[in-house]
């Protein structure tokens, strides 16, 4: 399973990076989200998969899956939510103010002028 996960994480990262490198602002945000998903899966895979029961000490399981990556990912999910929201609003504002989402047109002012 870990091997399969490693491969799919690679695919997610590839797609995410390609999206981030594109021209459209919206696609860039998509890209960051895809990369975030990839990262979350990467972290949980690093901790080892299905090595035991869920990390709840209710006496039903003898061994537990690694709780540490889960705590990390929980933090990451929430932070990712905040940054995605911020990016979205940034893009939305750029949209409504400038009427374009093409990165090539969002170039600001040349300092020489």
């Amino acid at each position: 399973m870990e091997t399969l996960m490693a491969i799919i994480i690679g695919i997610l990262f590839t797609i995410g990076v390609y999206l981030v490198l594109s021209k459209s602002l919206l696609r860039i945000i998509f890209g960051t989200s895809v990369i975030a998903h990839g990262t979350h899966l990467l972290i949980i895979t690093m901790g080892g998969l299905k090595t035991g029961g869920p990390p709840l000490l209710d006496g039903r399981a003898v061994s537990y899956t690694d709780p540490l990556p889960q705590a990390l990912i929980l933090t990451a999910i929430v932070i990712n939510f905040a940054t995605t929201a911020f990016l979205l609003v940034l893009a939305y504002r750029a949209y409504s103010a400038l009427g374009t989402e093409n990165m090539d047109h969002l170039r600001g002012i040349n300092d020489n002028e």
């Binding site: 091997t3 490693a6 994480i9 690679g10 990262f13 590839t14 797609i15 390609y18 490198l21 895979t45």
Partner: peptide, 15 residues
């Protein structure tokens, strides 16, 4: 190329 390389590296690291 960069995106593929990136994905590949991540997979290699994970493995």
């Amino acid at each position: 190329a960069v995106a593929l390389g990136f994905g590949l590296i991540v997979t290699v690291i994970a493995l």
